[in-house]
Design a protein around this nucleic acid. Structure first.
Lengths: 138, 138
DNA sequence: TTTGGTGCAAAACCTTTGCATTAGG
DNA sequence: CCTAATGCAAAGGTTTTGCACCAAA
């Protein structure tokens, strides 16, 4: 299965890095680097866009953050539990539900071996409209 | 489920459009617009990159071609059967197997409704190393 | 002090758009 | 003839990189 990197964490604790982590912790939705940068600036945190990108990369590398790529090729980040899992994302409000789907994992492995493939990794994301957005749809 | 577009096909048959379709038909792997453009140029076909992009968009719109976005945000295209399905891609040689996985569809719908989500769509791609590449690696 | 972190500006990258020209029907 | 399609060049957007400066340990 997709081996997790050695996770060579950051070596120095800085104000900026803490800010990124905390901003991410405060959001339940997948967020882009630029959005995060805007949020931080708005709340008065002085930080450069470059640093936000680098911090997010570091966090993703060390497995503290999950990332997904949108249809438009934009990368979104979200603080997640370390275990492998997938997401069910509301395409209206962005609300996200983590899904630990042993069923799919099994399915994926079975399909793969059936076709002689090994070292399997997979990308599985579900998108839909949550109950709130379906009800009050603005 | 993700509704398929009305598929308003191209209105004029042109040399370039035919070239793109044929080039795509000749490849079993997911290919980027730029790669396709290179291939066409190499085989002596005069065609602009812009036209390749536009042709691929049209083909994708009309459902004659499947597309996926890589981790780096690049869009890859591949000629596919029209029915909804997923892919098992060899990360070494690019060999691709189409997978019609009613099992996952069911799973996805179940998970979604369980959480009150509707209008579900999903992204599911499997990556691995095929038998040829595992055996003769190199 | 030492060296990783920061941030601006500029580059790199893929993709889309404007507009004059070409060619399919 | 009429207008969609083409293609160049330029713009658009996100992400990365170069380099001088700053600050954590």
């Amino acid at each position: 299965m997709s081996g997790s990197a050695p996770a060579t964490g950051p070596q120095r604790q800085t104000r900026q890095r803490a800010a990124v982590q905390s901003a991410l912790a405060g959001r339940m939705e997948f967020t882009s680097a630029q959005q995060l940068h805007d949020l931080l600036r708005q709340q008065g945190t002085a930080i450069g866009l470059t640093t936000v990108y680098r911090s997010l990369q570091a966090l993703a590398d060390s497995g503290q953050v999950d990332l997904l790529v949108t249809d438009e090729g934009q990368t979104l980040y979200r603080q997640c539990s370390a275990e492998h899992h997938h997401h069910l994302v509301c395409r209206d409000c962005g609300r996200t539900v983590e899904i630990a789907g042993p069923a799919v994992e099994t399915w994926a492995d079975a399909i793969a071996e059936e076709h002689g493939f090994s070292e399997i990794s997979h990308t599985i994301e579900l998108f839909g409209r949550c109950s709130s957005c379906t009800a009050g749809t603005g």
